[in-house]
Design a binder for these strands. Structure first.
Lengths: 156, 156
DNA sequence: GGTGAAAACCCCTGATC
DNA sequence: GATCAGGGGTTTTCACC
């Protein structure tokens, strides 16, 4: 696991850079923190290997690809049995409209971040994942009017 | 704006690739969809230029850098005045513990995805952003027990 | 263990068709 | 859009601390 990997200050600086922009060159990072480009690349390789960096991905503007709507859906299951939890998790993970899925304490059991092309698309999603599922007691929907901060930049 | 840019099937295939892995080579993408590497790069450049691809970033495992806890916080403002909304947005966006901030309809006004090193760190966050703010009526906290799906992969 | 320097390699870029 | 030549970034090797 990556949990026991000890970062030093150079690693943290590098992570701050690549969390903003993964295409920045090792040379530029190195110049800003006083390291050679090769050293930066070596550290990046290690950070990937040990799992501190889980992936390097392109972020796509949902509106630009026709996924103009975003919803936050709280889901409460009928019965909290492990097999039912796992079944729901699997279905949520596999659903293309589900961007994120959190298993939480509190009122809801799961919180989902969902995008959809339009209301019909969202309704199709709710039928698919929620209504046609006897194990779901109820769910709440919040419509996102503005995404003020996105991504998953972690403070390091 | 990027909203009026028309994607074709090649673009969509490319977006599926780079949303999973931004380091994949143009050659590999091209081979899988029947395009030359140069053509793929040209399309990627265009997708960046028009804003379909908003960024290419490294994803960091929060647990690996000591941010082991995740929370979902619903925030209800005292009065929904535009200047107060904007003030809160700005503060949330600037806060290092806030990973995501959504302005929503429904019970809450904002939904935040927050990470913290531990409960003390989270408490410090709530003081900083929530308690020391007369404009906040109340907030709810849900503790994330499992992050089943993360990132912001958009179906294209 | 770590770094920096240089060469080799690979990929991206731009020009051309 | 494809092909090819040129430039740039990454990766490896090596010597060094």
């Amino acid at each position: 696991m990556a949990t026991d990997y000890q970062l030093d200050d150079f690693d943290r600086e590098i992570l701050r850079w690549v969390q903003r922009d993964a295409r920045v060159t090792g040379e530029e990072i190195g110049a800003s923190i006083g390291l050679s480009a090769a050293a930066v690349q070596r550290r990046l390789k290690q950070l990937r290997k040990v799992g501190v960096i889980t992936a390097e991905v392109a972020l796509v503007d949902p509106a630009a690809v026709g996924q103009v709507m975003t919803f936050i859906v709280g889901v409460e299951l009928e019965r909290e049995r492990v097999d039912m939890l796992d079944a729901f998790r699997g279905a949520a993970r596999a659903d293309p409209n589900v961007q994120q899925c959190y298993y939480v304490t509190g009122e809801a059991d799961f919180v989902l971040i969902v995008t959809a092309k339009d209301m019909d698309d969202f309704e199709a999603f709710t039928r698919r994942l929620l209504f046609d599922n006897a194990n779901i007691r109820r769910f709440t929907t919040q419509v996102v009017m503005a995404r003020d901060k996105v991504g998953s930049s972690v403070p390091v």
